[in-house]
């Protein structure tokens, strides 16, 4: 894999840092007066999702990381691994471990389309679609006529996720949720 010097750093570039693949979020070139320049870089660790802030001397370099994203369909879980299939026509199947899927588990429904981050062809992260449709598994009984007040109540979805929903939502109904904010969007007519 090629290595990249600080002046090639740009947001979206995938590099290795401390053994983990990272995505460069922001790269700021700083040159104090006539002094030595440096780069203040924010990188997102693609395995943990944590954002690191590091300072590099200008001209320093980092190994590139063989990271790519693939559109895949979630198939099933076997208790240890979660299985996904590529939707590019190859039908290639890959298994992801718990660390890779953990963050998206609340939104993962079989046959849903997801984006899988592959590092050296191994899944390291799974991102659900921005909006998913999930069935309400449990919530307090609906209160008719209370819609105008805009009150909310917690509802447990089929995946186990808990989101706030309007009072008129009942068990068995399907709702649309924004996975980035875990917010209820609307009721989906079946």
């Amino acid at each position: 894999m090629a290595s990249y010097s600080t002046n090639e750093f740009k947001s979206g570039l995938k590099v290795m840092l401390e053994g983990d693949p990272c995505n460069i979020v922001e790269n700021e070139f700083v040159k104090p007066g006539k002094g030595q320049a440096f780069n203040r870089v924010r990188l997102k660790n693609l395995k943990t999702g944590r954002v690191w802030e590091r300072t590099f001397k200008s001209g320093e370099s980092l190994e590139g990381a063989d990271v790519m994203e693939a559109d895949m369909e979630y198939l099933y879980a076997d208790g240890e691994y979660w299985h996904f299939m590529k939707t590019d026509g190859s039908y290639e199947q890959l298994a992801a471990d718990k660390a890779a899927v953990e963050d998206s588990l609340p939104w993962l429904k079989e046959t849903d389309k997801v984006t899988v981050t592959l590092w050296d062809e191994v899944p390291i992260a799974v991102a659900p679609a921005n909006f998913v449709e999930l069935e309400v598994a449990d919530t307090d009984p609906g209160l008719k006529g209370d819609t105008a007040q805009g009150g909310t109540k917690p509802a447990t979805l089929s995946t186990g996720a808990v989101v706030k929903v309007p009072l008129f939502i009942n068990i068995g109904e399907v709702i649309r949720v924004d996975t980035r904010t875990a917010e209820y969007q609307n009721r989906v007519k079946q």
Partner: peptide, 15 residues
């Protein structure tokens, strides 16, 4: 942090 053992007083003043 970016200044090494060869950095001068001027480099520190600038930083």
């Amino acid at each position: 942090a970016h200044l090494d053992e060869h950095a001068t007083l001027g480099d520190y003043l600038d930083a």
